[in-house]
């Protein structure tokens, strides 16, 4: 694909006058690459820039109704403190409390299911795998009413536990599918020798398979963290009390509370996005690898 832009030289009469040397063509290609890449990247960054600009604006800037492109006239980080104190701190904590056990639980469930499906041949294995894959693609609307009703029935409505249990259950499908795929690539021979040695299955799972699955678990944990952290719908349906709500609901609440104080809302949005973005930047390789390995999301 090295001369992706080679068609460029048959375009204009400018290039036809004298045949281009190899060197000249390479320069043109390089320039075209950077021009295109920079342009696309700049366009993609626009929403981020607008959010950052807005979060640093003062109320008078907002009231003046200046274009969203304008940088803040007197940049201030006061907005961040203000939203942090008016609830974002609590929402941030709530989301953390919801997300961490959900990720751990989903990984645990997934690794159990994956172990069964990767290392055992049995009747029904195919159906079980199919159910797990199909389940993760189902429209959430198909689950909303029964899950809401079930939570009410067993007293899990408006509790973190209810939301966490749902996240674990729903993500079990993806985690099982994902980890099974990884475990399938592990040599069966080590397993067989352990079995001949008389090791119990649970021991093989814990001492042998889980440690070898660590890279996949890391990638999966990062994906799960992002998805559960960013969830909105299930928090909306399964929680009612303001002091339990995750940060995504807090943000929407902020919108209702401050209406057109975009600077405060922007500051809140940046706070909410900060952790997933930091995690992505720190573990980018895992994140992208996980996404392509699983080839499916949410």
């Amino acid at each position: 694909m090295s001369d992706y832009y080679s068609y460029g030289d048959s375009h204009g009469s400018l290039f036809r006058r004298a045949p281009l040397t190899r060197q000249q063509r390479r320069v043109i290609r390089t320039v075209l690459f950077y021009a295109t890449a920079l342009l696309v990247t700049a366009v993609w960054l626009v929403p981020f820039v607008i959010a950052v600009f807005t979060s640093l604006k003062t109320f008078s800037d907002i009231m003046a109704g200046l274009s969203m492109w304008r940088p803040p006239t007197a940049p201030t980080i006061q907005n961040f403190f203000e939203v942090w104190e008016t609830g974002m701190a609590m929402f941030f904590r709530n989301t953390t409390i919801i997300t961490v056990p959900s990720v751990i639980g989903a990984l645990g469930m997934g690794s159990l299911g994956a172990y069964a499906l990767a290392f055992h041949r049995f009747r029904g294995a195919r159906v079980v795998l199919m159910v797990f894959i199909a389940g993760m693609l189902i429209p959430f609307q198909m689950l909303l009413i029964p899950v809401f009703r079930f939570s009410n029935l067993v007293g899990l409505y408006d509790t973190w536990q209810g939301l966490i249990l749902f996240h674990i259950a729903f993500q079990t499908g993806f985690c099982t599918f994902f980890l099974r795929g990884f475990m399938k690539t592990m040599p069966v021979s080590i397993l067989q020798s352990a079995r001949i040695d008389g090791a119990r299955e649970l021991l093989i799972y814990r001492r042998l398979v889980l440690p070898l699955t660590k890279p996949a678990l890391a990638a999966l944990a990062i994906l799960q963290f992002t998805w559960i952290w960013n969830d909105y719908l299930w928090g909306l349906v399964l929680l009612q009390s303001d002091n339990l709500k995750p940060i995504t609901l807090g943000l929407v609440g902020l919108q209702g509370q401050f209406v057109s104080s975009y600077n405060l809302i922007a500051a809140g949005a940046i706070i909410a996005a900060s952790l997933p973005i930091a995690v992505f930047l720190a573990f980018q390789r895992h994140f992208i690898h996980g996404l392509t390995l699983g080839a499916v999301k949410e």
């Binding site: 990247t41 993609w44 943000l251 909410a272």
Partner: peptide, 19 residues
């Protein structure tokens, strides 16, 4: 280019609302 993938739809909705 990949950064939007890490954002919640709620945030995407808010920012695009300003656009």
């Amino acid at each position: 280019l990949f950064l939007p993938m890490t954002l919640s739809f709620v945030i995407i909705g808010q920012i695009w609302g300003w656009i």
